Amino acid sequence: MKVEIYTKETCMFCHKAKAWFAEHNIPYEEKDVGTTAAFSAMQERVPGAKTVPQILIDGHVIGGWDNLSAYAEPILKKLRTAYPA
């Protein structure tokens, strides 16, 4: 199960999302979108995205920190199938 997080260095919600995955020992691939070209590439992958973080699990868009925190329990349950505690 692949987790991708599109981030910017100055984004506090990006730091919170990365900390959540680290706390639960879930590996993720971080993609820094600090440049205009990288941000545009993220928008091609996640149409309509205007903010970061953008979190994808197996190519499915979860959304940002608000969605991750709102659905943390079912997301973690799904991830535990691939990454047992």
Results as ranks from 00 to 15, higher is better:
M1L: 15
K2H: 08
V3R: 06
V3Y: 03
E4Y: 00
E4I: 10
Y6V: 06
T7K: 02
T7I: 14
K8G: 08
C11W: 07
F13P: 10
C14F: 07
C14R: 00
C14A: 09
K16M: 13
A17H: 01
A19E: 12
A19P: 05
E23D: 14
I26H: 06
Y28G: 04
E30P: 12
E30G: 10
D32T: 09
D32H: 08
D32N: 15
D32W: 04
T36F: 04
A38H: 02
A38D: 12
A38T: 06
A38V: 04
F39R: 12
F39A: 08
A41E: 14
A41H: 09
M42Q: 04
Q43W: 03
E44I: 10
E44G: 08
E44Y: 01
R45S: 05
V46M: 00
V46P: 01
P47V: 05
P47K: 04
G48I: 02
A49M: 08
A49Y: 03
K50W: 01
K50T: 12
K50G: 10
T51Q: 06
T51G: 02
T51L: 00
V52H: 02
V52F: 07
I55A: 06
I55S: 05
L56F: 04
L56V: 01
L56S: 07
D58E: 15
D58A: 13
G59H: 03
G59M: 01
H60M: 12
V61H: 13
V61P: 03
V61G: 06
V61I: 11
I62E: 02
G63I: 01
G63C: 09
W65N: 15
W65S: 13
D66A: 11
L68S: 04
S69I: 12
A70S: 14
Y71C: 09
Y71K: 14
A72M: 09
E73D: 14
E73C: 01
E73V: 14
P74Q: 08
L76M: 12
K77P: 00
K77N: 13
K78E: 15
K78G: 11
L79W: 11
R80P: 03
R80E: 11
T81W: 00
A82S: 15
Y83H: 14
A85W: 02
A85Q: 14
